[in-house]
Structure formats: structure tokens, C-alpha cells
Design a binder for these strands. Sequence first.
RNA 1: GAUCGCUUAGCUCAGCGGUAGAGCACUUCAUUCACAUUGAAGGGGUCGUAGGUUCAAAUCCUACAGCGAUCACCA
Length: 721
Amino acid sequence: MDKQSLANPGIGKNYNHKEHEEKIYKSWEESGAFKPRPYSLKHKAYSIVLPPPNANAPLHYGHAMYTVEDVLIRFHRMKGFSTLWLPGADHAGFETQVVYEKHLEKIGKSRFDFDRDTLYKNIWDFVQKNRGTMESQLRRLGFSLDWTKAKFTLEEDIVKTVYKTFKKLYDDGFVYRDIRLVNYCTKHGTAFSDLEVEYVEKTSKLYFVKYKIEHSKDTITVATTRPETIFGDSGIAVNPKDKRYKKYVGKNAINPLNGRIIPIFADSFVVMDFGTGALKVTPLHDENDFELGKKHNLKNFQVIDFRGKLTKEAGEFEGQKAITARDAIAQKLKNEGNLEKIEEFKNSVGTCYKCGNPLEPLPLEQWFIKTNELAKPAIKAVKKGQIKIIPKRFEKIYFQWLENIKDWNISRQIVWGIRIPAWKNTKTGEWVVTEGDAPRGADWVQDTDTFDTWFSSGQWPFATLLSKNENAKKPNAKSLYKKYYPLSVMETGYDILFFWVTRMVMLGIFATGKVPFKTIYLHGIVRDSKGQKMSKSKGNVINPLEIVEKYGADALRMSLIAGAGAGNDQNYSEEKVRGYRNFANKIWNATRFVSNLEKTNDKNLPALAGPKLQNSKTQNDFNKKLNKIINEATKYIESYNLNQAAEIIYDNFWHWFCDKCIEDSKRGRLSASDLKYGLEVFLKLLHPFMPFVTEVCWQNLKNNSLLINQSWPSMDKWPKI
RNA sequence: GAUCGCUUAGCUCAGCGGUAGAGCACUUCAUUCACAUUGAAGGGGUCGUAGGUUCAAAUCCUACAGCGAUCACCA
């Protein structure tokens, strides 16, 4: 305890967030303040659905950016809207399974030790536990979410909606099943969509391998980074314009590893000045080769299996890891005089974003969604202004992606997720898609795969609002869907624009015929104090709850909103948070001053000589200025310039209201009633940003009402400027 | 290869057509005063470079440089 506190015990000169925050949150929640007020013509709907955090882990610092949503919700609630802010949790299929498998690893087990149902149930329990942690953290941040409407992506009614959408996509011809080369992680045992592949620049070896021409002494040299796939070669391609190789087109070459006779053919796909200008074609282990193989009717040989090991096609190398066998195979080629040289060069290798191992392109039968026709209305919706993207520069990125979209592989070979409602007839091989129920008869077996998580979260805006047996095209009169869909805003990080936002627009329009939300607000990434992305492996992760504990949620929230515009990254700064903690204290003390004025009955205090000062020049200026601040702050929030709103309120409260007006009141130039009115206005303006301290202060001034339910300051009280 | 963003005070960043801003840091002063988690005063920037548009440019346009990001290709 310092000297100051010893001298003034118990007076509470400093705002202590720990004393208030949890209590205040409880009082809001218990009062029902988070529930939307009855929807009516007067109280128009305003709705946001929280991007559901993964249910497998505590919150990370980026989640605190959802403060943006709380600001918008609290602002609109005070403006009189019927505001719905719906929380939820995402089962996060693959992500969660990886987290859970790490947990299993620690106790010396693996996913193979359990049958499907047991594994699913165990992960379910694991997730429920973490979900609770995550939700209590959202409360600590002060988010005014309507917890009575919380959803989970694996709940029965959500799954039902996801099934309906899939069935409709299937019936309308948007879903097909095909054997294609997919991006497969042999460690995690599942395929990914193209979007999930992480390309890493690496220095690789380029092997120049000689193939003999059949019935000739000539050889043709090809360049490859993957000699171990030579066992699967079924052709050599050259460019039709390439004079060097014209004479070989139509002839055959001999595979140097297994002696197989393979055709040499021409295709303009081949780039003449890369490598030797001759390309070995391995249809089952390279996507381009797969296309070439189909086009030229080449044979298919699978050399690598789903565990990443060489198959019997590899002869003596069978059973070895494909990657580690590479050197030995190169050595064999060299020993037999078929390796011309090895060069080093840089290329990017598609890797698993979780384990970093190279992904193996492997042939697998999967469910795909044709995205081309789904993308068109999504593009149109933004072009026509039915959806507005903030900041605007992301529109271009949005268009670019949707205009070049590829079909979407939605099958995942994992247990944790929504199992695909497709059944195969064991006798006829026929596939049937249903809305979840097994088809009649005994010969149907359900697909063991689950949906890509983004397929279900892509339906989140309407799936959360529809009730179990409701149809989006014919909603129930009183349903949430009818009142709150389309959502007013979808607010999320720009890093999941492609993964999530575009998919929500495509699936939303497809399933409901309406855009899922009117505005997309994209926030930036919070990096560490040096500008590095926070990551567990770097060990630079900052736990937002520790900051809340130390400085209060208000300080953390304000630090994230002020000083960073939409879509811009920001660096974490403890000094900044501390600065806003000090600001909370400033608010506290200004309130202490004003409420003491009120409680004192000392008529000699100049500040209480209010009535005499009516219509004085000072008061007039005071009103004008206050009015101007309300006006600007409101405009800034309504135009999504939250940082500017926060900054002008902060600046004017501290350096005008506290430094000037309070001092004026001490000198009798401003009445106590004016001062109190001004403080109330500022508490309201600050409330969306710093809800806890403003609520505490409000209750110090007016004991029996909640600030959260007050009206936003009106600009009509004083004459327009 | 394409696209996007950033470059403003020592540091971190707002501002994005109308006399250079904030926080932190720094200098000086003030403490029985709502608040030292404070107040007052002050120092510090030709707003990346070069052109252009404009009565007026940190702000719009064009090039260039450095940094960062995303997408595509990669035998």
C-alpha cells in the first residue's frame, strides 16, 4: 500500500475493475438486457451472429476483436433497435481432431485405438468442456450476447439444416462424386480442399532422368523433382512446337525403372523452356498429369498409398516411405546410367497446414460441389450493393477469388464432424443422398466421411435462426429467421474471407434465396508487439484473459478499437492497454467528482449555482460542443469508423470535459446540473466501447437503472448547430 | 507472374483534398485540489522518393524504392 492510500483509506480513488466486472455482467444477463426487445415497426431488427469460435480451445487474442460486434450491438440497442446477437461454437472438425489426437498422443494412444462411435463420443465430451471455458471468456470480455439462443454446429437442428442444404444441392445438380486427385495428408489421414493447402517455398532437387526410346539408341531426358514416382509413369509429353522432340512423337519410351513401354505424345501444356522440355506423366501422383492422362487415355498406376508408402508398383522398394526412398531410387538410376544430373531449384510445395508435411496428391473418390454457378449470384450481390464490404478494398479480392473458383471437395476422412448423408447400395453400387435418414432396404451403407467444417459453418447465418422443421422459403411467422434474416452485419477477420465469408454468401443465397447479411465488416489481425503473427509454435501468444485480469476488459476493448481502422492489422501493446486502463480511472474519478457535488448540499459551492447561469455564454458553448460530439460520434459509428468514434469521444471526454468543463465548474462558470448532464452523455457515448466502467459510474449517479438499456444521446435536446 | 496493403514526431499508429494529430517516451513546473493510473506549459515531423492534377495534396493520379500480405504457377 502506498502513502496515498494510507492517507485516504477506503475512499476508492482508483477504479478497480476486479470489483465490478463480473458482478455487472451478471446483472445485465439476469435483467434480460441481452435479449432483443420486442420487434416492431418502431423497434427495427438489428442482428449479428457471432462467428462461432472453435469449441476445442480457449479464446485467443484475435477473438477479442469481436468487440467490434459488441460496440455495434450496444449502439443499436441504445438506438432502440430490436437487437439480436447470437453466440455459438464450431465443432471445427479437422482442427479439433488434431487437437484431440495430440491429447491422445500424450496418453500414449491414437485414433486407431477406438471405434468410430467411441472416438466421436470422447471428442464430444472433450469439446463440451472446452466450450464452457470459451463461453465464460466471451462473458469476461463483456460481450452482450443472448446466451439463451446459443448454438453448436453439431446440434440436431443445425445438422438437419445442413442435410437439407446438401440434399437440395444434390437434387439441383450441384453435387457430384468423382475420383480425383486430392490433397492428402498421409499423417492426418484426410484430404483437404485446395484452399487449405499451404504452399511453402523450398529448395528442391531437380533430377534429370534418361528414358530410352524404343527400337532406337536415342534417349529422351526428362526433369523431375520426384523420381520415386517414375514407377507410375505412363507417358512422356512434349510441346507440339518443340523441334527437338518432334521426331519422337508417336514413338514409345522405356520406363528406366520397370521397363514399361510408354507413349511419347504432344500437348501444348508442356512448357518448352522448363527443364528439358520433356515431361514425364504420372497420372495418379500429380494433378496436371492426371488431366493429361485423362485427355490422352494413359494408364494409371498408383505408386504411393494413403500412408505415404510405396506400393508393389515400386518393386523392391515396396513398403518404404515414398519420401525417404527417393535418394535410394535416384542412386539406382545413377548406378544404371540413367541419371544425367541433379540441379537445385526453388519451388513451392503444398504442405499440410497443421503438420507441415508435404501433401500427397492421391486419387480418391470424394464429394465435390460445383461452385461456378453458386459463385455467380454471390458476385452479383456485391456488385449490386446488396452486400457491402468494409473496407471496400476487399471487394476486389472477393471478386477475384469467386471469379476463379474451383470445385470444392467437401469430403473429409475424419470422424469428428457431420457425417455425409449419402448411402451406397452394396449390391448395385448406386448412391443415394437423403436428408439424414437411411434409405429403405437392407443393402445401404452410409459414407464414412464427414463434411468439411466450412460446409456447415457456411450455413451459419440461417442455420442458427431456423427452427428444426422450418423451411427457409416458407418461414414460420414468429421465427427468428423471419425477423432477423438477413443479418445486418457479418463481422470477422479478413483472413477467413475465402474460407468462410464467400461460402456463406454462396450457400446463403442458394438455400434461402436471400443474401445472408447486408454488410461484411472485416477486421485485421492482432500481432505481437514486434509485428509477428502470434502462434503457439513461436511462443508469442498472448492470452487475452490475462490482460483482462490485469487491466480490465474495458481497457483491452478500447485498445483494440481505437487506433486501428477496419481491415488493418495492429500490434499488441501493453502500454496502450495501460493507457486505456488509466482512461477508465479517469471516467471513474470524473463521476466521483460529479456525484459528490450532487450529494453535498453545500449551497456555497459555486458549481451548484446552476440556475443563475442558465443561458450564459459558457453554457451555450457547452451545449453546442456536446451536441457536436454526439453528432460526430454517431456518424462515425454509423459509417463503421469505430476507431474514429472511440478517439473523438476519448479525446473530448478527457481533454475537454475533464480538463476544461470540470475546472470551469469549480470556478462557477458551469452549473452542476450541466456538468451532470454532460457526464451522462459521455457515459452513454462511451458505453459501447467500455461497458463495465460506464455502467458502474451510471449506477453511482442513478441508482436504479441500467446504462445498457438507456437511449443513445439525442441530438435534438439542443438546437442544431 | 498478378493483386492488395503499408511507408506520417524517438517508438506504436490515427488522419486520407482546406493552417501537421494521439498515445508512449522526453524537458520544465505543480501535490492537503475528482483523479499522480493527475494537471499545466514545452521541445520534436519539408507526412518514403520523383513527377503530375488542383486556388489548395500527407490526403487524388503516375512511376520508382523498401517492407508486408494474398492468390496463381512451378516437371
